[in-house]
Amino acid sequence: MPRASGPLAAALAHRAVLLDGGLSNQLADQGCDLSGGLWTGRVLTERPDQVEAAHTAYARAGAEVLITASYQIGYGAPEAGVLLRRSVALADRAARAADHEVWVAASVGPYGAVLADGSEYRGRYGLGVAELAAFHRPRIEALLEAGPDVLALETIPDTTEAEALLGVLAGTGAPAWLSYTVADGRTRAGQPLAEAFALAERSPEVIALGVNCCDPQDVGPALEAAASVTRKPLLAYPNDGSVWDAAAGRWHSPPTPVPWDLAAWRSAGVRLLGGCCRIGPPAIAALAARLRTR
């Protein structure tokens, strides 16, 4: 069947849509080697069949949006454009093979992800809007050439990078969502969330905004800040509550699972809902069941 019968924005106008979960943890569970600076991009390069298999696992779990493996692909290497377009093609194949409507979201990760040193959780790279726009523009152009349904501007740590991304999109008409990574009621770079979300509110290309790759406990306050400045659909796809230790290259898990206040998030305006790091297909299947019962 076709991967989707209409624009994602149209679906969000009247119902909640289920995102997938963490691509890296699913690839690791499939036995893939994610070591090195490319992370999931290494599997995209060496074992594209495994990337498609991971997308398929999420589609079978009920995910309605598959996010591509382009998060950590920079644009310095000659093959970068090929890999970016490949990431969309693999998600597209999995979407078309699904037994339900599925959209493809092309991941546009932050500049810090390419550095592979955890700086996407700090922001403030020392680069200005023009420099960051110059980095992101060829990546976005390559992804758009591959024809995704939407761009996922995700795990953005500060407003400088958000401004750069929105500037690249301005006038293109390309639908996108903008998702910050947050902590303690502010962006990772420490900026007020209401100001950060107001940037996306002013962009006609942005069809939804919210947070990802954060502690579930940080979702509620962030959604309140977003709802104070926009009437656009909101989104949330947090982690499981673990904390990434970039120096050690490992996750530190909480002693007990961190609960998701799904009812409160939906009441706040969330229409795109899923998981990020360490949220796998079983959790997405459980989330699909919860959404069906509402």
Score class of each variant (00 low, 15 high):
residue 2 P to R: 12
residue 193 L to D: 11
residue 278 R to N: 08
residue 156 I to V: 06
residue 141 E to G: 15
residue 178 L to E: 12
residue 290 R to G: 00
residue 149 D to I: 12
residue 129 V to Y: 12
residue 272 L to R: 04
residue 31 G to I: 07
residue 246 A to T: 05
residue 80 A to G: 07
residue 262 L to F: 04
residue 158 D to M: 08
residue 230 T to K: 05
residue 193 L to Y: 12
residue 7 P to F: 07
residue 234 L to E: 13
residue 124 R to W: 12
residue 35 S to W: 03
residue 126 G to P: 05
residue 216 P to K: 06
residue 73 I to Q: 11
residue 137 R to I: 07
residue 73 I to L: 13
residue 65 V to G: 05
residue 6 G to N: 13
residue 59 A to D: 06
residue 253 S to G: 12
residue 272 L to E: 06
residue 290 R to Q: 08
residue 293 T to E: 08
residue 30 Q to I: 00
residue 109 G to S: 02
residue 115 L to A: 05
residue 112 G to K: 14
residue 183 A to W: 06
residue 48 P to R: 14
residue 242 S to F: 09
residue 24 S to K: 14
residue 109 G to A: 02
residue 14 H to D: 12
residue 187 T to M: 13
residue 125 Y to A: 09
residue 124 R to P: 05
residue 194 A to G: 13
residue 192 P to W: 12
residue 65 V to L: 06
residue 61 A to Q: 13
residue 118 G to E: 10
residue 75 Y to S: 08
residue 20 D to Q: 05
residue 118 G to P: 01
residue 222 A to M: 03
residue 16 A to Y: 00
residue 195 E to R: 06
residue 219 V to Y: 11
residue 163 E to I: 03
residue 38 L to H: 02
residue 24 S to T: 15
residue 119 S to H: 07
residue 142 A to L: 02
residue 29 D to P: 00
residue 33 D to W: 08
residue 105 A to Q: 03
residue 48 P to H: 07
residue 216 P to L: 07
residue 169 L to G: 00
residue 126 G to V: 07
residue 1 M to P: 04
residue 207 I to S: 03
residue 268 A to R: 06
residue 117 D to A: 09
residue 103 W to N: 05
residue 197 F to P: 05
residue 92 D to T: 10
residue 285 A to P: 07
residue 214 C to M: 15
residue 107 S to R: 02
residue 41 G to T: 02
residue 240 D to V: 00
residue 180 Y to Q: 10
residue 259 P to I: 02
residue 150 V to T: 14
residue 178 L to W: 00
residue 136 H to V: 10
residue 5 S to N: 14
residue 128 G to L: 13
residue 237 Y to W: 04
residue 104 V to G: 13
residue 207 I to G: 04
residue 96 R to I: 00
residue 180 Y to C: 10
residue 8 L to A: 12
residue 186 R to L: 07
residue 220 G to A: 04
residue 241 G to H: 13
residue 93 R to A: 01
residue 289 A to M: 08
residue 171 G to T: 01
residue 204 P to H: 04
residue 134 A to Y: 08
residue 188 R to M: 15
residue 42 R to H: 09
residue 272 L to F: 10
residue 225 A to M: 09
residue 71 Y to V: 00
residue 108 V to P: 00
residue 292 R to K: 15
residue 264 A to S: 13
residue 55 H to V: 01
residue 156 I to G: 01
residue 54 A to E: 14
residue 262 L to D: 09
residue 120 E to N: 09
residue 104 V to Y: 14
residue 197 F to A: 00
residue 194 A to N: 11
residue 259 P to G: 03
residue 242 S to L: 10
residue 251 W to S: 02
residue 81 G to D: 09
residue 16 A to R: 08
residue 132 L to F: 03
residue 205 E to H: 05
residue 141 E to Q: 09
residue 201 E to W: 06
residue 187 T to W: 10
residue 143 L to D: 04
residue 55 H to G: 03
residue 91 A to Q: 05
residue 266 R to F: 07
residue 103 W to T: 04
residue 166 L to C: 12
residue 263 A to F: 02
residue 141 E to D: 15
residue 124 R to N: 13
residue 278 R to W: 04
residue 263 A to H: 09
residue 266 R to A: 10
residue 250 R to D: 07
residue 143 L to P: 09
residue 23 L to I: 11
residue 195 E to T: 01
residue 154 E to I: 03
residue 20 D to N: 05
residue 193 L to A: 11
residue 121 Y to C: 13
residue 8 L to F: 14
residue 177 W to S: 08
residue 234 L to F: 04
